[in-house]
């Protein structure tokens, strides 16, 4: 017996039992049957045809008009059958596209540092989570030959695939930067020239770049239109805005970037973030920046990696697990001497 005949047979049994007993059990069987035929990809017009054949078999005496009305119905259902088959094909194509994007997302992930360099003086925690599969957030942590630690966070305007394509350019531009220019102002200027030449005119990139000198404990930083971060002073037990004025990268060839600096005492930390963090929102409102510092404060006794993980987990829950923008949070803390 082929599939069609098997289906026809079980349809006949279910229908017959329903017509005899009119009970809920048969209707439940009918529901299960419809799942089965969907699995077998039987189209609507075939169901009408099965119904007609079964009815003719069970009740040979039904009026010809009733029989013919099913033939008419079959004709009407052909359109649904075509739409159904198109739907299946489009669904498969969507699956293929999703697989393709998964591969791209994996590739994109390799653009991010595979591990955070181990630095004696610093405790660095990073979390980055894309809103969908491809991310427009980029970060970078390196230790150069002179022992300086460079930390970058960037947000490419827009989301998804265009942003992801642009990210690879930023990564290669940063990698090809000579070691001698790990100073924020110079680095941003050089990066800006590369990006300005290679990016579509409607796109731009915001970035905050900082570099820490372990000898002097000075943190130099510069910004290119990026979301301000925070500076936490352990002594004063206080958060301050970490703001660095500057034009976003890729807008003007001539842009200049100022450099700022802060001397970091033990326990002080710098928070860098993307706007996905500050634009978190609950159902009725955006989350205030103070709420983010309050969250960080709540976990500040933990390692920086635990802090960023916990802050993410809390914010994710607040907005009911729906990220609206790519989320990246980095904390760089000067370690205390005793736990070096």
């Amino acid at each position: 017996m082929d599939t069609y005949e098997t289906l026809q047979q079980s349809y006949k049994e279910i229908l017959f039992s329903f017509l005899q007993k009119k009970n809920e059990q048969s209707l439940y069987d009918a529901q299960q049957f419809s799942k089965k035929v969907l699995e077998e990809k039987v189209s609507p017009e075939e169901i009408v045809s099965i119904h007609l054949e079964v009815i003719q078999e069970l009740y040979p005496d039904i009026p010809p008009e009733t029989q013919e009305s099913f033939e008419f119905l079959l004709e009407v259902m052909i359109g649904y059958g075509m739409a159904y088959r198109e739907h299946q094909i489009l669904r498969n194509r969507q699956k293929e596209l999703e697989n393709e994007i998964d591969v791209a997302a994996n590739m994109q992930h390799t653009l991010l540092p595979s591990e955070i360099p181990d630095v004696e003086e610093l405790d660095i925690g990073v979390i980055t989570v894309p809103a969908s599969k491809m991310s427009g957030d980029y970060y970078h942590v390196i230790k150069d030959a002179n022992g300086l630690i460079g930390v970058a966070i960037a947000d490419i305007i827009g989301k998804g695939i265009p942003a992801a394509l642009c990210m690879s350019m930023i990564k290669y531009a940063m990698d090809s930067m000579p070691n001698s220019i790990l100073q924020p102002g110079e680095l941003l200027e050089s990066l800006n020239r590369t990006i300005e030449q290679n990016i579509a005119s409607h796109m731009f990139v915001t970035m905050m770049y900082g570099s820490y000198d372990p000898k002097s404990h000075i943190f130099y930083y510069g910004g290119a239109g990026h979301e301000p971060g925070f500076y936490y002073s352990e002594q004063q037990d206080r958060f301050e805005e970490l703001y660095a004025k500057g034009l976003a990268l890729g807008i003007s060839k001539e842009a200049k970037y100022r450099e700022f600096s802060r001397e970091m005492s033990e326990g002080d930390f710098v928070v860098l973030l993307s706007d996905g963090v500050t634009e978190c929102r609950t159902e009725e409102r955006f989350i205030e920046r103070e709420e983010i510092t309050a969250l960080i404060r709540k976990y500040k006794h933990l390692s920086t990696q635990k802090i960023v993980d916990n802050v993410y987990r809390d914010l994710e829950r607040w907005q009911e697990f729906q990220l609206r923008d790519d989320f990246t949070l980095i904390i760089v803390r000067r370690k205390f001497k005793e736990n070096k």
Binding site: E45, E46, E71, E75, I78, G81, M82
Partner: peptide, 11 residues
């Protein structure tokens, strides 16, 4: 051809 295929060919 059966009735389903007739309807398909006609469509």
């Amino acid at each position: 051809f059966g009735s389903v295929d007739q309807a398909r060919i006609t469509t």
